[in-house]
Design a protein around this nucleic acid. Structure first.
Ligand SMILES: [Zn+2]
Ligand SMILES: [Zn+2]
Length: 728
DNA sequence: AGCACGCCGACT
DNA sequence: GTCGGCGTGCTC
């Protein structure tokens, strides 16, 4: 009897063997099966079919039910998921399930029951013409059937029962026929709308360069300055691939960008386009999945989760806004979708185009290494004149309201011209610190030991680390003094200060306190008059959502934080944000201005940002990282451990640390940093610690990580901690 | 993951 | 004495 190896969606790394009962004819690798597991039932994926098992034969249980007659994964996707499971140290069952739409995870059958409809026979057609008496029920039904078939399930709506149709069928006037699903055959005759795609010489050269890869695996980094270049290149490549009958997978970082992309494609191509993202309901997601798998869809556009959709004939992957942080996956393993997309392209042996105006440093580094290839349509001349860039020095200045006098003067100038202003301040609330004037006690959250943020409009102190909130105390917990003073400025206070400074100007605050749901922002801004002076205050979420075509002045407050951040990538993210703002101001009709308020106007980071283009900034930052031996010049694995007792996580990481130091594999090229506590991220009663491992060799680091994970399994009290890995 | 089993302290 | 919490280990 054959032994079926099954992967289950549990965080346990090995697979489980089952027997095939006699009444089940066949199973397929990559198909789902229902199996007994302990005293419950689970759905699993068949991983292999073998002749024997290492597990004692008498302990093997039988498979209950086979759910699929065909594998759910195309061979390339199957190999990719197996590779991910190994590389990211995830259980195969978990990643196999994560890649499926929820309905399939729950056991929904894929080969749905065939649909039937009632069609008229030739005899029925003859009777329809010959019948003289038009008042019979038979004639009424035949009329309906003559024009179109009647569906089995909508017969009741027309007061035509199945019984009547049955009786007509017995007279051979109509018959029940299986509906043959007609695929829209876009492969042979997809049509292009009449708009001529104007291509200039640079674009033509770019396209011919891309085509030289003969649609084999290659990673392109595509950069542009003028948005039309991006449109032209994307559309032209989509068309090239479609003309060969192949499908296109397009990834965007945010749901609201799907709409823009779909409009772009629909304006040019008359082909079936599907979308795929986490806000789509289960039924729709399954349908898009099915249509991609069968090849009915020509183009599928989606966010992160779209990367695992099976595609019948995939010909090209486009990854837009390559640098975007949203590509860092949260659920189902902490990997970057950019890396997975490249692996998929490699596995399918097709090209991938990653587009960005501000590429990630990692990608630029890979271009330098010759792993990726660039298509550069950037304008070589970096134009520093079209947007005024200023650094306002606030060193040793006492700021009454968080804004320097020079800044207020600039704001007046813009407002007087009826222009709009955008103010960034990455701090919610009224003020970040509440201090006792008598004893200098800072009111802190008891759990996180972090200063509470004062929120005056809701009369609460809020801990931004664990979301706890308490009423504002009227006296000091320590000495009882009533002299509690707030220090520092958040968006709430800034809004109030601006109202005093500019009493006649309308002001909108945009942060998670005023706009709890993403997507609501555009709604709120609809009501503002774009021709009038207006001030928008908010955290960084402002820029993520939409573009502001009437803004002429953008002010960045408290930018010095990024210079001293513990995360070495924060400078990179800031540069990307900055260049996005500059692009926005450039595209607006009126002349724009961007101002940083800083204590370090002479700092080389700010000087490079303001006076050079993004690529220059990227090159200098990469050089710095090379000197400091930071990623991407070294490989990194971070072990994140979370506990609830503020003890276990630290204890485990110390154990691993000691274990690695004593292990024969340990040598000076392995760097271990930590365990370090992560104060900024923990939620209520959860404590995070991390251990960072650095090694120049990726494969050695992989071995070391595997070793740490095996050794941690043997330790006690495993259930107390939650471990997640971040690999590169 | 989810479930049972077993050990120990608390409480009718 | 037994109820229930949690730590432990097993699931083919
Ligand atoms: Zn005090
Ligand atoms: Zn807290």
């Amino acid at each position: 009897m054959s032994v079926i190896q099954v992967a289950l969606p549990i965080p346990y790394s090995s697979n489980f063997d089952y027997l095939l009962p006699i009444h089940i004819k066949y199973v397929v690798v990559g198909g789902r099966v229902r199996v007994p597991f302990g005293n419950r039932k689970e759905i699993g994926i068949v991983v292999s079919i073998k002749n024997s098992s290492i597990y004692p034969y008498h302990k093997l249980k039988k498979i209950d039910q086979v759910l699929d007659i065909k594998s759910l994964y195309h061979p390339n996707l199957w190999l990719l998921l197996n590779w991910i499971s190994n590389y990211y140290h995830l259980s195969l069952g978990q990643i196999l399930f994560y890649s499926l739409p929820i309905l399939l995870r729950k056991g929904e059958l894929l080969e749905s029951h065939p649909l039937y409809h009632w069609v008229i026979t030739s005899k029925g057609r003859k009777q329809f013409f010959d019948d003289i008496n038009h008042n019979t029920k038979t004639y009424e039904i035949l009329t309906k059937l003559y024009y179109k078939p009647l569906y089995n399930d909508d017969t009741n709506n027309n007061k035509i029962t199945n019984d009547i149709l049955q009786s007509l069928a017995s007279k051979d006037l109509c018959k029940l026929e299986k509906i043959i699903h007609v695929k829209q055959d876009w492969h042979k005759n997809y049509s292009i709308n009449n708009v001529y795609l104007h291509m200039n010489i640079e674009q033509r050269i770019a396209i011919s360069t891309i085509c030289k890869s003969h649609n084999n695996f290659i990673v392109w980094l595509f950069m542009w300055t003028i948005n039309y270049d991006k449109t032209a290149i994307y559309l032209c490549m989509i068309e090239n691939i479609m003309s060969k009958g192949k499908q296109i997978l397009i990834l965007v970082p945010q749901i609201n960008l799907i709409l823009k992309m779909i409009r772009l494609c629909q304006a040019r191509f008359k082909v079936p386009i599907d979308i795929f993202h986490s806000k789509l309901n289960n039924k729709k997601r399954l349908n898009a999945w099915k249509r991609s798998r069968s090849g009915e869809t020509a183009i599928i556009i989606g966010t992160n989760s779209v990367i695992f959709t099976p595609l019948h004939q995939l010909g090209l992957i486009i990854l837009d806004d390559e640098h975007h942080v949203a590509y860092q996956n949260k659920k189902g393993g902490r990997y970057n979708i950019r890396d997975i997309a490249i692996l998929r392209a490699k596995q399918e042996n097709i090209p991938i185009i990653m587009g960005s105006t501000t590429p990630s440093l990692k990608t630029l580094h890979n271009v330098d290494l010759g792993k990726y290839h660039e298509i550069n349509l950037r304008q070589s001349q970096y134009d520093t004149n079209s947007v005024i860039r200023t650094l306002v020095n606030i060193k040793n200045l006492y700021l009454k309201n968080g804004l320097s006098p020079l800044l207020i003067e600039r704001m007046r100038l813009h407002l007087n011209k009826n222009n709009q202003i955008l103010l960034f301040l990455n701090r919610r609330g009224f003020s970040p610190i509440l201090l006792c004037h008598e004893c200098n006690l800072i009111i802190q959250c008891e759990i996180c030991h972090q200063s509470y943020t004062l929120h005056k409009n809701i009369d609460q102190l809020q801990c931004h680390s664990c979301q706890r909130s308490i009423p504002i105390p009227y006296k000091c917990f320590n000495c009882g003094s009533k002299a509690l003073i707030s220090i520092g400025i958040g968006t709430e206070q800034l809004e109030l200060n601006l109202k005093v400074l500019f009493p006649n100007i309308s002001i909108t605050r945009i942060d998670t306190d005023t706009i709890p749901l993403t997507g609501k922002l555009e709604e709120k801004l609809k009501n503002t008059d774009s021709s009038k002076a207006h001030i928008l205050v908010g955290t960084q979420m402002i820029i993520q959502e939409c573009f502001f075509s009437n803004v002429t002045l953008v002010i960045l407050l408290e930018v010095d934080n990024i210079l001293f951040s513990t995360d070495f990538r924060s400078v990179e993210y800031f540069a990307q944000l900055y260049h996005q703002i500059v692009r926005m101001l450039k595209n607006n009709s009126k002349k724009g201005e961007i101002i940083f308020q800083t204590c370090y106007p002479e700092h080389p980071t700010f000087q490079t940002l303001l006076n050079k283009d993004y690529i220059f900034f990227a090159k200098t930052t990469l050089a710095e990282r090379k000197n400091l031996l930071l990623p991407p010049y070294i490989h990194q694995v971070i072990l994140n451990v979370e506990d609830k007792d503020n003890k276990s996580a630290y204890y485990y990481l110390v154990k691993i640390y000691k274990l690695l130091k004593l292990h024969p594999i340990y040598n000076s090229s392995l760097q271990i940093i930590g365990p370090t506590p992560l104060l900024s991220v923990h939620r209520s009663n959860q404590y995070k610690w991390q251990l960072a491992l650095y090694h120049p060799s990726l494969s050695t680091l992989h071995q070391i990580t595997k070793l740490s994970l095996i050794s941690i399994k043997n330790l006690l009290m495993l259930k107390k901690i939650k471990l997640t890995l971040e690999i590169n």
